[in-house]
Computed example of a mutant assay.
Amino acid sequence: MSAPILIFDSGLGGLTVLREARLLLGEHRFVYVADDAAFPYGDWEEEALRARIVALFGDLIRDHQPAAAVIACNTAFTLAGEALRAAYPQTCFVGTVPAIKPAAERTASGLVSVLATPGTVRRAYTRELIRSFAGQCAVTLVGSPVLAAQAERLLQRLPVDEELILAQIAPCFVEADGRRTDIVVLACTHYPFLAPLFRKLAPWPVDWLDPAEAIARQIRRVVPEAPFDRDAANLGRDPAVFTSGRKAPELERLLVGFGLKL
């Protein structure tokens, strides 16, 4: 049986990446890991969170021996990506970073916004991406402390606060010299689940740039194509691991829709 691909997130946001990865790597098994015991990551001090993620991956790599480990979380990868690669050099890590380069290539107005978590906005990594790839653009960084939690609520069919969501995305919309923001980078894997609401509430249409497809293409580049594994297919749904140990019926129903089981 071939080694699985491990997809890691602080919560449910990485399901956007899993969904795209399955389209390109359907012959592979997956393991989904949500560090929901520590959610939201934005509440943590950086050093403590980095140490937690690196230690957690020691257990995950030992238990699952993945063909690749996908950090489907901008906050986690921009904070701990280098430390993970240094600690586990035999493991192939695929990271998630804000899609600033493709946004800069696509924008017509030159006004780009990056909607992220506060941690991703603070990170020097993000500002270096802007300097490297978007020097000719005016980039607005918007860090929301609440949108990831709203996405988790939406996925679990709980009510969300549209006024709160509008207040969080409003700073993304900038007008200057007759130009308007035309691209908003979704720099948190939770946010694509809210994209229909973003479109509904936005003051004007923009391109909401979802990085999940690009991440899936990168996984395809680094993970060799494998023959279809009939034994693995017969096992049914792929495993999902939640670090809190949570086993709620509504969570189990949600995961079934993504081909996962607790």
Results as ranks from 00 to 15, higher is better:
Thr117Ile: 09
Glu162Cys: 13
Arg122Cys: 11
Ile130Val: 15
Arg153Gly: 06
Leu164Trp: 10
Ile165Leu: 08
Ala104Cys: 05
Thr140Lys: 14
Gly119Ser: 12
Gln150Arg: 07
Leu141Lys: 03
Gln168His: 11
Ala103Arg: 01
Val121Asn: 00
Ile169Gln: 01
Ile169Ala: 05
Leu111Asp: 10
Leu166Val: 07
Thr140Ser: 14
Ala151His: 01
Glu105Thr: 04
Leu141Ile: 05
Glu128Phe: 11
Leu166Ile: 07
Gln168Glu: 15
Glu162His: 14
Ala151Phe: 02
Cys137Glu: 13
Glu152Gly: 06
Leu129Tyr: 00
Ala170Lys: 11
Leu115Asn: 09
Leu155Gln: 07
Ala134Phe: 09
Ser144Met: 02
Ala108Val: 07
Asp161Arg: 05
Ala116Ser: 14
Ala138Met: 13
Val146Asn: 06
Arg131Cys: 07
Phe133Asp: 07
Ala151Cys: 09
Ala149Pro: 02
Thr107Cys: 13
Leu154Pro: 04
Ala116Val: 05
Ala124Phe: 12
Ala116Tyr: 04
Ser144Thr: 04
Ala148Gln: 03
Leu129Ser: 00
Gly143Met: 06
Leu166Ser: 14
Ala170Pro: 00
Lys101Gln: 09
Val139Pro: 01
Ala104Phe: 06
Gly135His: 10
Leu154Tyr: 09
Ala124Arg: 14
Tyr125Val: 09
Val139Phe: 02
Cys137Thr: 05
Val112Thr: 07
Leu115Ala: 08
Arg131Lys: 14
Ala108Phe: 12
Thr126Cys: 07
Gln156Ala: 14
Leu129Asn: 00
Arg123Pro: 11
Phe133Arg: 10
Pro118Asn: 02
Glu105Ile: 05
Leu115Asp: 06
Asp161Pro: 02
Phe133Pro: 02
Ala108Ser: 11
Leu111Phe: 10
Thr120Asn: 02
Lys101Thr: 07
Leu129Trp: 00
Leu158Asn: 11
Leu129Lys: 00
Gln136Ala: 13
Leu129Gly: 00
Pro118Gln: 02
Leu129Met: 01
Ala124Met: 13
Val160Cys: 11
Thr120Ala: 01
Gln168Pro: 02
Lys101Gly: 05
Arg106Ala: 15
Leu155Arg: 03
Asp161Val: 04
Leu155Asn: 04
Leu158Cys: 10
Gln156Gly: 08
Ser113Met: 01
Cys137Ile: 05
Arg131Gly: 08
Pro102Gly: 03
Tyr125Glu: 09
Val139Tyr: 03
Arg157Thr: 13
Thr117Ala: 11
Leu115His: 13
Arg131Trp: 10
Pro118Ser: 03
Pro118Glu: 00
Thr120Phe: 02
Ala170Asp: 07
Arg123Met: 10
Ala134Cys: 08
Leu141Ala: 04
Pro145Trp: 15
Ile169Phe: 05
Gln136Gly: 07
Val146Trp: 13
Glu105Ser: 12
Ala134Val: 08
Ala151Glu: 03
Ala116Phe: 08
Leu154Gly: 08
Val114Lys: 03
Glu162Leu: 15
Leu141Cys: 04
Thr126Phe: 08
Lys101Val: 08
Tyr125Arg: 11
Gly135Asn: 13
Arg127Gln: 13
Leu141Val: 04
Val114Tyr: 03
Pro102Ile: 04
Val160Ala: 10
Ser109Met: 04
Val160Tyr: 15
Gly135Cys: 11
Ala167Thr: 01
Leu141Glu: 00
Pro145Leu: 12
Leu111Trp: 06
Leu154Gln: 12
Gly143Arg: 04
Ser109His: 05
Ser113Cys: 04
Gly110Phe: 10
